[in-house]
């Protein structure tokens, strides 16, 4: 907790209430001490700025562009926030509560007058509002609003309302399931293209009509090399099955069931049987096809009880 801000009582357990309490104290504390600019308003910096922005206004560098006001009080490469800086203090409170990510949402500056080279600025800031928790597209967070005031010899010359969203980053997506990936070639592509669109495709000879799984390029019955496919009904019965316990396998939690299913069409296909009590699976049990989406590129055939 920063100096100048009383610690929030440990008795306040509700995280949101602790945040509100800290915010109340910071708002009540009002402006922090003015922090003087490192350098006076100066022509070299004005020239660099207008050159970079392509601003050929002849008034520069006789006066400074108003939008440069923040530049004059920047902390520099190794600058650090002052201990009593209210935005820094509020940020620490929200960081500790898990709202560790930040995005700036609003910035509005008001200029009282032009600044001239040689003038020395100071800036002070106060916390004006902390609102939340809010659900946002980025995640749950708090909007933190501060107002900064720039002065020259005590005279207010510019003001800025600045609002950030401090949010809790969403949990990282679960790591993709790593399963051995099938080799896909000209002979088998139709099958995997089928599972990707929710179809269980069975090779059908374009000549004699024989069904076959696993597929191959030449019909073992008639010798034709014109394989096509039919979309299976997806209904079948468990012809045999295993319950895998050991060793652990990537992408699966043990125990799990792998079933060899005889489809209504008469061919057999392997797949995980999901949604069934491993201890209750029986040969002959009716199942239907299910599709196990591993990622955008791989969908495995699977089964569920019917």
């Amino acid at each position: 907790m920063s100096a100048g801000v009383a610690p929030v009582a440990d008795a306040v357990q509700d995280p949101a209430e602790r945040i509100r309490e800290a915010a109340r104290r910071l708002v009540e504390a009002g402006d922090c001490a003015p922090r003087p600019a490192r350098d006076p308003v100066n022509e070299p910096m004005i020239n660099n700025w207008t050159e970079a922005l392509g601003d050929a206004n002849p008034a520069y560098p006789g006066i400074a562009p108003p939008a440069m006001v923040q530049v004059w009080t920047m902390g520099g490469l190794h600058g650090q926030r002052a201990d009593d800086d209210p935005l820094g203090a509020m940020t620490r409170v929200l960081d500790e509560a898990g709202y560790t990510s930040v995005v700036a949402t609003d910035c509005a500056q008001t200029y009282a007058r032009a600044l001239r080279p040689g003038e020395r600025l100071a800036v002070r800031a106060r916390l004006t509002d902390v609102a939340g928790p809010k659900r946002t597209a980025l995640g749950e967070g708090w909007f933190v609003t501060t107002v900064s005031t720039w002065t020259v010899d005590g005279e207010p010359v510019a003001e800025m309302m600045f609002r950030i969203l401090k949010f809790r980053p969403p949990p990282p997506p679960p790591p993709p399931r790593q399963v051995p990936r099938p080799q896909v070639n000209r002979d088998t592509a139709y099958f995997w293209e089928g599972t990707a669109v929710g179809e269980l495709r069975i090779q059908k000879c374009g000549e004699c009509g024989a069904l076959r799984h696993p597929p191959g390029p030449m019909c073992p019955r008639c010798g034709a090399t014109r394989p096509g496919y039919v979309v299976a009904s997806g209904r079948g019965e468990v012809y045999s099955f295993v319950v895998h316990h050991h060793p652990p396998l990537p992408g699966r939690e043990v125990p799990f069931v792998v079933a060899l299913v005889e489809l209504e069409e008469g061919v057999r296909v392997l797949g995980e049987l999901r949604g069934a009590d491993p201890g209750a699976v029986r040969i002959g049990a009716p199942v239907e096809v299910d599709f196990d989406r591993i990622d955008d590129e791989l969908v495995l055939p699977a089964w569920r009880p019917r």
Binding site: R181, P182, T188, L270
Partner: peptide, 10 residues
């Protein structure tokens, strides 16, 4: 290719 009918499904 043969292994592709077996290993991926567990």
């Amino acid at each position: 290719i043969d292994n592709g009918w077996q290993y991926p499904v567990g």
